[in-house]
Each structure stands twice: as structure tokens, then as C-alpha cells.
Simulated scan of single mutants.
Amino acid sequence: MTRRTDSHPDLTRPDVGAPFFSTWRVDTPDRQRATVAAIAHTWERREWPAPGLLAYHVYTGGDGATLLHHSQWTAEQAYEAFARTRRQERVDEIDTAVPGIRRQGLDRYRHYRSHTRAAGDTRVPGLVVTVRIDFEPDARGRRRDWTDTVLTALTEEPDGHDGLIAAHFHLSGDGGHVLNYAEWESDQAYDAALAAPGAGIGAPTPLWERVRTYPGVKGFTGSRYEHALGLVPE
């Protein structure tokens, strides 16, 4: 069966071979809530669809108009089998409950590295921030080096960011970008980090300046989310 959970996903679990993210545009906060309710109703009344799906989580966007979806699969083949046999009936029921959802596409990733929470840190994230870092075509091979630089900068941060619980970096399957899924204690903690000296997250140090001006990086796109629904097998 399918069980609802309030727990956030573990982005570092070793059995996840295919982490996927996608965005739905639903336009208003009321439709955000209605869509989350429709997803829960549609999934909870059905058997868990596949042993290769480890967890499925939904987040409401801080813009009041979007939903972020994160599914954790053992392998891409497990998702493909689900898409052929079990996906459409769920999509149809959700679309009947909330017409007009615009699905923005599915992005496939591989988890690369994480800045993990400190030992004994049991805080529940009050805010999830995703940052997409796009690279020029001739710089795609530098994504790992850029990520390594960020993680070193976080480790060597003079004052640190008390509100940052963890940050998880994923390499896109298309080779074009990195996705950072960052867990923050709260909106206020994230805003305080943005307002600290420097140009955004990170102290005004040479290492952070290298991150910000890294050759081949086209740009950064950040979004705020709140965890709204977790679904796991019984």
C-alpha cells in the first residue's frame, strides 16, 4: 500500500540510482493546495506502483504558483516501466480534480556530492531552496570541479551559515546543469544568509569569488519551496 509521511526525503540514500525533479505550474495558492490534495487522494487509494520507486515528495513553491516534485527511483528503467503502465491513470485523475495543470517537464539527475548535516543535528527543514546552475556547452565537463569548489568554500566558511542544514548537488542527465537542493532551517535563516556581507550566499572570500565567477557558468536560478506531501511504500 501507499503511506503518507511528514518526513523529508534522504537525498543521500545509496539505493537511489535515479533522482528525478519536475515542476508543475498551477497558478494560485488555492490551486496549489487543491493539487496537493488531489495527488494525495489519487496515490493513497492505490497500491504502491513499483518496487523501484522508493519515495515521492511534493513541495509548494514560495511563488504561490508552482509545485516541485521529487521522486527517488532505483534506476531509470524502473521509472520507464511505471510511465508505460501506471502513470497515466494517476495523471488523468489529478487533472480531473484540478484542470489546467501545466507540467514543465521531467529532469533526470545523478546525485554527486553533499554538504551533509552535522552529527546529532535533528532539525527539520522549514525551507527547501533549489538552485539550478547552467553551464555553457564547452564547460559541461567542469560541473564536478565547480561543485567541489562550492563544497570546499562551505567547509572553509569563516562564520558559516547556522541556518543551512545540508546541500545536495545533482548532475543533470543532459549534461547542461547542476541542481543544488539545499535544506534550510527557515525562510528567515535563508534571508539572513543572503543579507550577509558578500554577493549572495557565501562570504567575500577568494574561494567564493571563484564560485561566482567560474568560467563557463551561464547563470543561477533559485526557487523556494515548502515540503507539502511525502508518499512512501507501506
Score class of each variant (00 low, 15 high):
74 T>A: 09
79 Y>G: 02
79 Y>Q: 12
81 A>P: 01
81 A>F: 01
86 R>S: 08
86 R>K: 10
93 E>F: 00
94 I>D: 00
94 I>V: 15
100 G>H: 05
101 I>M: 06
101 I>Y: 02
105 G>K: 00
107 D>R: 11
109 Y>K: 05
109 Y>C: 08
114 S>P: 09
115 H>R: 09
118 A>P: 02
125 P>R: 01
125 P>L: 03
126 G>E: 06
127 L>W: 03
127 L>D: 09
128 V>H: 01
128 V>A: 06
130 T>P: 05
131 V>L: 09
131 V>G: 00
131 V>R: 11
134 D>Q: 09
139 A>Y: 05
140 R>N: 12
141 G>S: 13
142 R>P: 01
143 R>N: 03
147 T>N: 07
147 T>M: 04
148 D>F: 06
150 V>C: 08
152 T>M: 02
154 L>D: 08
155 T>P: 02
155 T>H: 15
161 H>R: 12
162 D>M: 02
163 G>E: 09
164 L>Q: 09
165 I>N: 05
166 A>F: 08
169 F>T: 13
170 H>I: 02
173 G>S: 13
173 G>W: 01
177 H>S: 15
180 N>M: 12
183 E>W: 05
186 S>M: 12
188 Q>E: 15
189 A>G: 14
193 A>R: 03
194 L>K: 13
195 A>C: 06
195 A>H: 09
197 P>I: 08
198 G>R: 01
198 G>E: 10
201 I>T: 13
202 G>F: 07
203 A>Q: 10
205 T>N: 04
206 P>A: 05
